[in-house]
Design a protein around this nucleic acid. Structure first.
Lengths: 350, 350
DNA sequence: CACGATTTTGGAAGCGCTTCCAAAATATCG
DNA sequence: CGATATTTTGGAAGCGCTTCCAAAATCGTG
């Protein structure tokens, strides 16, 4: 096995200095067409590949972005949601010549803060993409800002959004649309299975939902709100609680698809017909919403796009040296969409 | 922001040479207790963190392992399956001080081979973990072996398993157990929705299933075999094909949970009651199997454990310098388990 | 065409670490 | 106790690249 060619081999082959090759490879503006071609030809001929380690050491960047997900020690992660974001991030980072490393950490212990900070300090990555609930940890975000470290938030709440580059849908508006859709369908008694209180974006969805109810002349007593943790299991349990009793809600809004699937499960178990007896809605439009029976009416979030958009913002920020944290519009909204399937139906007003 | 301490700072603080610090940090055997302590104290005092880039450049290793998944350009990946493996791999790699990067590539185009080889060549990682169908690409595996590159296979078929370190369940035996269970339940007409032919492990499951049928005195005409692609969608379509007509199978065995969920969907649509009219089984025991209604009888694979085991084997191989490819037992079987849920039931022999 | 302004190129100094080699210190043994 | 084997330490040479600075080439202008 012969030694891999180095930049010096290329320089020799092209008859130029090492520094010139480096410039060509890094698309520096100051190179003549003639030399550029010679170098490129030599690269081709030798099948030269840059050594990332060396490049990183010399340039003091890692060309790696880190994606941080929540995963309780035991809970299965909200996989479809995470996978979709990861896939988008992966595509975008690869496209820009960056690597992507994914980290999961337990948001219920405080250790995650130091873990995140140490990722940064060890120069393991050039920037961070934070997903909920980390994207709402204002204290940590403050620290990151202070050390001038680039990061982008996904689905952050309003406070965090104002301060930092972020991508997400307009959760409040999504809540409004979902609410008015259900009101239009004739529903008057609602249940809401939300997320943990740290998840600001899920709370926004509820605000929007309430707004829609108010607009329709309904008060807060028209809705029963309970707090889940985004797992299938919590959907099962909380739906059992909400659907017991004769005057149960006729529409159950869930803050993600997994909990909606759990609610569906419970409805089946206690013999309620969905959507005849009760309408159920999810959120995210992950594959879960089509796997269950009946398929879920839900809000489509372009998760893949969110992942790639976040990555691109991050990379732009890294390259622009603190361009990330300079003035400008931080908040990137991506479009959402109400997807009607068979888990909801019109309900005659009693 | 003050400059980060380097190994030279530590050396100066401890009053020793740089090389000595390096030795202590890398747990080299030849260091005296006295010096080791001085160095460790200095490290502590300065809050020194090694610079990975520099270490990697100097030592010509990356301390990163790569995990390779299949993802068609458009198809949503088989997320739960992948996520579980990834989680296991992540835990194990972190534990051993390694990074993990995940790569997805499209197995339907041939480009993936050069992509995988280039991962290796660019010294982006010290080793590879291959999942199906890549773990069955004997040609590529041969190339990897030739360049002496460490890798571990997950759920590979028998040919590949013999040659390389691998982890997985005994797929054939799982097929046998599933088959005899269904035979015991009284089923006599079967359908099998398999994977693409490159997936050797899925083919093994079928072999086991057939063996169980033969043992029960049933011939190959007792089973209709069709080839899916592990997606929910293909489960829907192929089940529609198998379940049409009056004398449809009474038991439908699917090579993964997603396709089983699709089969369930079709059964619902065409008005068949599961499990009364037809029993359906999945494979893997991903969360999907509990999300659908009725919950799926399936084979539990310890995916997380498989991910971590593969990672550990790989790291052991990397550290042992070709210990990976030396003699010894390559095949690591992990236990599987038949999980009975509500998608299967006894069937009276007609 | 000469001269300063600008662009392109080459030389050389690191980036922070590992590792080879030889020197120093310590242990072993007749 | 001296000579030799062994272990521990220090010095120095890179790993392959980027980037600063100055030299060389090119351009623009009166």
């Amino acid at each position: 096995m012969t030694r891999k060619p180095t930049i010096d081999d290329v320089a020799r082959a092209a008859g130029v200095a090492r520094a010139t090759v480096s410039r060509v490879l890094n698309a520096s503006p100051n190179t003549s067409e003639r030399v550029r071609e010679k170098v490129l030809k030599a690269v081709e001929a030798l099948n030269y590949q840059v050594n990332h380690q060396a490049r990183q050491l010399a340039s003091r960047t890692s060309r790696v972005v880190a994606l941080v997900f929540a995963a309780d020690a035991e809970a299965e992660p909200n996989s479809y949601y995470h996978s979709a974001i990861e896939l988008g991030a992966m595509r975008a980072s690869t496209e820009h010549g960056y690597g992507l490393v994914t980290h999961t950490m337990d948001p219920t212990t405080d250790a995650y803060r130091s873990k995140i900070l140490s990722l940064v300090n060890q120069s393991r990555c050039d920037g961070l993409i934070l997903t909920p609930p980390f994207s709402d940890d204002e204290e940590m975000i403050g620290e990151l800002r202070e050390c001038g470290y680039p990061f982008v938030l996904i689905s952050a709440g309003p406070q965090a959004r104002g301060l930092s580059p972020s991508v997400g849908i307009d959760d409040r508006q999504a809540g409004v649309e979902l609410g008015s859709y259900l009101v239009e369908q004739g529903h008057r008694r609602f249940g809401y299975i939300g997320g943990p209180s740290e998840h600001r974006s899920a709370a926004l969805r509820l605000e929007g939902l309430l707004e829609a109810l108010h607009t329709a002349g309904l008060g807060d007593d028209a809705i029963d709100v309970v707090e889940g943790n985004f797992t299938f299991k919590s959907g099962i349990d909380l739906a059992a609680q909400l659907l017991s009793g004769a005057r149960h809600p006729t529409a159950l809004v869930c803050a993600n698809d997994d909990m909606a699937a759990g609610a569906l499960f419970t409805a089946h178990r206690i013999g309620l017909n969905v959507p005849v007896d009760v309408s159920i809605t999810g959120f995210d439009d992950t594959p879960v919403s089509q796997i269950v029976w009946p398929p879920l009416t839900t809000i489509h979030q372009p998760l893949r796009q969110m992942g790639s958009k976040a990555t691109e913002l991050l990379i732009a920020g890294v390259m622009g040296e603190n361009g990330n944290h300079s003035a400008g519009t931080f908040e990137h909204f991506v479009p959402f969409e109400l997807v009607q399937r068979d888990s909801t139906a019109k309900r005659a007003v009693e």
